[in-house]
């Protein structure tokens, strides 16, 4: 899902950076001293989760889990995912420098949207209904990211239309896997630690 330096047109890169900065600012405002450790450790968890490779037919895909990050962190998903992307670029050479903004936007914006739409439903009701909503949230967030990546490519020039379509269709199975894993992760968390989804966002349990 990473876009590299040099592929996108300047307006797309600049608009992405500005929008990502706005999202990060919103996320930082939603954090306070008490929540720094929670957000920090979750940010590290999502970095580690992105290292997990899940088998898919003869190949394997790595997880994004941005939907889960959004559902747990709300707006704070923006800075948390940005930090992950920054570390990936600097220490692993994945992604790029000038595209950090647009990459953050593509991954974090659908996460925040999923949280806005479904955030309340995850913690309420039975664990199974929470898990089903979480699966829908996971699917929406990954689909949103795929669509945004395809859109940033398509907006950068007609020559990327083929690649944009390819990115979208190649990721359809990934969307299904993300949905399943997000759902099961929430199912387990709801059963083991029901207050997780309340405390993670700073609402008293």
């Amino acid at each position: 899902m990473h876009i590299v330096d040099g592929a996108l047109s300047n307006p797309v890169v600049i608009a992405g950076a500005v929008a990502a900065a706005g999202g990060i600012a919103m996320g930082l405002r939603s954090l306070d001293l008490e929540r720094i450790p929670t957000a920090g450790v979750l940010s590290a968890s999502f970095f580690v989760a992105s290292l997990i490779h899940v088998p898919l037919g003869p190949s394997s895909v790595h997880l994004i889990l941005n939907g889960l990050a959004g559902l747990l962190l709300g707006w704070a998903a923006f800075p948390a995912l940005f930090v992950g992307l920054l570390l990936q670029a600097v220490f692993f050479g994945f992604g790029g420098l000038t595209v950090l903004g647009i990459n953050t936007l593509n991954i974090a914006l659908p996460a925040v949207l999923a949280w806005m739409l479904l955030g309340r439903l995850i913690g309420g009701g039975s664990p199974v209904s929470g898990a089903v909503w979480a699966a829908i949230g996971g699917a929406l967030a990954t689909a949103g990211t795929t669509a945004l990546v395809a859109l940033s490519l398509a907006l950068s020039g007609d020559e990327f239309l083929t690649a944009a379509k390819f990115v979208f269709f190649a990721h359809l199975p990934v969307i299904v896997i993300e949905a399943l894993l997000t759902g099961f992760a929430v199912l387990l968390a709801r059963k083991v630690k029901p207050e997780l989804f309340a405390t993670a966002r700073g609402v008293p349990a």
Binding site: L68, G183, L188
Partner: peptide
């Protein structure tokens, strides 16, 4: 999925 859930908990 349970693995990820357990890691988060």
């Amino acid at each position: 999925g349970y693995l990820v859930g357990m890691m988060l908990v």
